[in-house]
Design a protein around this nucleic acid. Sequence first.
DNA 1: CACCTATTATTAGCAACTACTAATTGTAAG
DNA 2: CTTACAATTAGTAGTTGCTAATAATAGGTG
Lengths: 195, 195
Amino acid sequence: MIQNLSKLERQRRIKEHILKDPFLSDKKLAELFNFSVQTIRLDRLEMGIPEMRKRIVQVAKNTTSTDKVKSLKKEEIIGELIDIELGKNGIAILKTTKNMAFGRTGIIRSHYIFSLADSLAISIIDTEVALTGIARLSYKNPVYAGQTLVAKARVARNRGNKYLVSVHVKSDQKEVFTGKLVIFSVNDKVKKEKT
Amino acid sequence: MIQNLSKLERQRRIKEHILKDPFLSDKKLAELFNFSVQTIRLDRLEMGIPEMRKRIVQVAKNTTSTDKVKSLKKEEIIGELIDIELGKNGIAILKTTKNMAFGRTGIIRSHYIFSLADSLAISIIDTEVALTGIARLSYKNPVYAGQTLVAKARVARNRGNKYLVSVHVKSDQKEVFTGKLVIFSVNDKVKKEKT
DNA sequence: CACCTATTATTAGCAACTACTAATTGTAAG
DNA sequence: CTTACAATTAGTAGTTGCTAATAATAGGTG
């Protein structure tokens, strides 16, 4: 076989292939490129690319660290409760970070803002258990990682176990989000009211 | 027969350990349980548990399974994308766990369900960047930790860069959440917009 | 006692390597 | 043309974490 690829070019391509598919063994790469397994190995060593098995372990460990269901940690959710008057109103702040944002744009993912609002809304209801029923959300302006959000919530109406909570979220005086949430308080044995 | 019980118990524990940490080799398990490597192997074979390397590959492949989506990197998606037709519809599932729930009641916090719906809605928009604008959410029934949620989303309307996505979330055929989200696609330099 | 199960040991072999040495090929310079 | 040198290929030994199969041993039970 005529080798029309320069060594460097081949190495660049090997690297590319491995990045795209870490599950490629040296043997398969050798078949792909029509070079001997030894050459592929030399290339890998020169580029400092670990063997397939170690690459797979790396990929697997990545999953575990990100943990599949990207769980929102509690601190991230609530932010920080600053002030609260049960049954009336409350203020919470959230310092946004890069890992709450879309990698490309740095814009905070909407559900983090909703989580802040929702958590705060539930917090100000003076009851054992509170559940969100209906919500209307409006995202006014994008929020960029690093900005600090201030959420203010107040109970706008309250009929029986049904609360209408209105939440406004600002960043630097600028409104970025508003929402109206209907929260139900569930006090006693009521666990499942619907079948 | 007394041995039998301890054997079963040991196998149960081995299974548990492997589930918790798929990176355990037979040798390490043998050290952990003070049994010979051969015994561990027999146990594994009886239980049909594959060898460490294959387990690692499985874990690694889990991560790689989802591609195809433009707007979100896979780590940014809440839940697991099952099927998607860009610009049209998509299905995602989320296995709920205790740490997504209120401790006392085991009821899943609402923003996890929203996050699932929101992520899915953004995923099906065929664009580089997609942002949530307005949302109307309705929580129909409480979800308890352990239940698996199936979210279906479809693009109901599309005018220009504005998409109306409707999302239905079910658990065991029962509808637990519905939402209508207005998503904006942002392809060029659009920074903020509100309609 | 023979029988049975659980456990452990032993051996051969495999995949996918590392690490090393050695041979071959290509090509350019003296 | 010959030598020098890099690139490539080949080959060997050793490693890890196994599978598969066979055998040996210990501990009961009927």
